[in-house]
């Protein structure tokens, strides 16, 4: 199930005033062309792929994101969970990126009373930071415990912080900052189908040594905009369900 929820999408249009109809997830041309700036861009659903089996925990993605989105030093959209398995000398260590999963069907959007959360044409859940009133409702429904609430140092108002998939970049056909910087190419960006295919072939390769390796996000919440490659079962990670 890779299509965006149409109702969600219409909500987007209401907020952005851009497109009216949007078909996502198919490799070919969209059914109906959207208006304005979006006209020449492919209107496919896009995805970030986090291949945790290549991540060396360097934190460049977090920092690139902080600079890109001009976050104060102590706020970050990208966090990590770490797990160790086994006892010395048979220990293994695994990381998993914990940030907005960009649910295809995003409950946070449904509950936001001021429409501060909305879907973009690429299928990501964006945030209208100015509109957010910091009510914390989205945090109560997010299946992945993503939204963090904190004071905006400029206005002093309470706001929700979460990855917005670099809306200003992806909406112009660009690549999110985390994917641009990652030297191991653990973070990649492309069409949802392409990223899913990459994830699946990587997992097939990993299964030799890691029989429990899996792709996470092909079905959860109608497909996640942040797909994960995991070497051990999702249940091992504190923020995955």
């Amino acid at each position: 199930m890779t299509e965006l929820n149409r109702r969600d999408f219409l909500k987007v249009s209401a907020v952005t005033g851009a497109a009216t109809v949007f078909a996502a997830g198919c490799a070919g041309a969209p059914d109906v062309a959207a208006e304005s700036i979006a006209e020449e861009r492919p209107r496919e659903r896009m995805a970030l792929l986090m291949d945790n089996s290549l991540c060396v925990n360097c934190q460049a993605c977090r920092l690139a994101c902080q600079n890109e989105n001009m976050l104060p030093v102590e706020r970050k959209y990208i966090r990590f969970d770490y797990i160790d398995k086994g006892r010395f000398p048979n220990t293994t260590h695994h990381v998993n990126r914990h940030s907005c999963q960009h649910c295809g069907n995003a409950p946070c959007i449904d509950v936001c009373p001021v429409d501060a959360l909305y879907k973009g044409q690429e299928g990501f859940t964006h945030v209208d930071f100015e509109a957010c009133i910091g009510c914390q409702l989205c945090g109560t429904v997010c299946p992945f415990d993503v939204p963090v609430y904190n004071e905006d140092p400029r206005s002093g108002a309470w706001k929700m912080y979460k990855c917005s998939a670099c809306e200003h970049l992806v909406s112009q056909g660009g690549t999110p900052a985390c994917a641009s910087t990652c030297m191991t190419e653990a973070v990649q960006y492309g069409t949802w189908e392409e990223m899913l295919a990459k994830a699946e072939s990587r997992v097939a390769q990993l299964r030799d040594k890691h029989p429990q390796a899996e792709v996470y996000g092909s079905t959860q919440q109608d497909g996640l905009g942040l797909l994960l490659v995991l070497r051990t079962p999702a249940a091992d990670y504190p923020h995955l369900v």
């Binding site: 460049a60 600079n67 910087t181």
Partner: peptide, 12 residues
């Protein structure tokens, strides 16, 4: 090759 490690970002 178009990539940067964490320290580059913080180095500003």
């Amino acid at each position: 090759r178009g990539k940067l490690c964490p320290r580059a970002h913080a180095g500003l």
